[in-house]
Amino acid sequence: MTSIAVVTGAGSGIGRAIALGFAARGDTVVAADLDLDAATATASASKNIHPMAVDVADRTRVDALRDQVTSALGAPDVVVNAAGWDRTDKFLNATTEFAEKVVAINYLGPVHMCSAFLPAMVDAGGGRIVNVASDAGRVGSAGETIYAGAKGGVIALTKSIAREMARHSITANCVCPGPTDTPLFAAQSESLKEALVKAIPFRRLARPDEVAAPVLFFASDAASFITGQVLSVSGGLTMAG
């Protein structure tokens, strides 16, 4: 049985790999991104993908995405919150403007998306929420303190939604990538990138499709009795309990 999946951050990196993964198994996919051109480029890979614009930090624009999705395709079966943003720097250098942007995108983005789409999923009698957080949110990360805090919030949000939504046959799970070969990682300094790769037991970065795989699992029938769980995809860098 095919699903309708909404994926944020689908214009590049992990979000793009997730959108392509759903499309490859025959699902109808909404590739939502702040950059509509990037979302359109993702959609060019499959007739199953529909590009749509969204700023997850703006609840009004999230509601507009919801209305566009439900009008064109119906209520989604799956919502994947993969959009994210950060800039590595010392915590003491962080401005209020920077902190608010990190929290707005990385934490309030999933809050807005879940709040906007869950009512229709409840009415439909079930669904899947999969949030892409970060291992920074599980164990902390120097130079990413505010980002780590926001992603830690996403983990707690996921567990709490799982508890509230279980009665409606809606699962909520969380995938936590470690260092991954994405445009966001490429923007880091060479010294930081080299240090992170050396710290990974496999001595390489994750590929976006390797992070997409557990997202697809959590969204599948095979995970029908799994909710409130957090799975790290870090090549052994973080073996969190």
Rank of each mutant, 00 (worst) to 15 (best):
A142C: 04
E164A: 13
P214W: 09
D58S: 12
S220H: 11
A148T: 01
L231F: 11
D63S: 07
F217W: 12
K47G: 14
L118D: 02
G152V: 05
A199Q: 13
K90W: 03
L92H: 06
D135F: 10
T158I: 02
R16F: 03
V7G: 09
A43L: 11
K90V: 02
D135V: 11
G126A: 08
L118W: 13
V6S: 08
S191N: 06
A17T: 02
D135H: 13
Y107M: 01
T238W: 13
V132T: 14
Y107I: 01
T180M: 03
I161S: 04
T40S: 14
E164T: 10
V103H: 05
L237W: 15
S191E: 15
L34I: 06
E97M: 03
N131F: 10
A219K: 03
G21V: 00
L92W: 15
P208G: 04
R61C: 04
V233R: 06
A17P: 00
N93R: 13
A75F: 13
T182E: 03
L65N: 13
T2R: 15
S44Y: 14
P177K: 04
G153D: 13
S141C: 10
L92N: 09
M1Y: 09
A199I: 08
S234H: 06
F202I: 14
I4M: 13
L192M: 12
R128Q: 06
S191G: 07
A5Y: 13
A156F: 02
F218W: 11
C114A: 10
T158C: 08
G228I: 03
G13Y: 00
T96Y: 12
M165W: 15
I226A: 06
K47C: 08
L34G: 12
K193R: 13
D67G: 05
V80G: 01
R25A: 00
A120S: 15
N131C: 09
A133I: 00
G152N: 01
I226K: 06
P51A: 08
R138V: 08
T158R: 10
R138L: 14
E144Q: 10
A206T: 02
A186Q: 14
M121W: 02
P201T: 09
L73R: 06
R163G: 12
M1L: 11
S46K: 10
E190V: 10
V30C: 09
D77I: 00
L36G: 11
G149Q: 02
V78Q: 02
V154N: 00
A24M: 05
L34A: 09
A82N: 07
G15L: 02
T60W: 04
A104V: 01
W85A: 08
A57G: 11
A94D: 01
P76C: 11
L108Y: 14
R207W: 15
T182N: 04
A187L: 08
N106K: 00
A162Q: 09
N81S: 10
G137C: 06
A94E: 10
H112G: 03
Y147F: 07
M121D: 02
A17Y: 05
G140P: 03
A133R: 02
R128A: 14
V69P: 05
G236K: 15
S189V: 00
V175Y: 04
Y147G: 00
A38N: 14
V102L: 15
V62T: 07
D89Q: 09
A219M: 13
C174W: 11
F98A: 15
G74V: 09
T8S: 11
N131A: 03
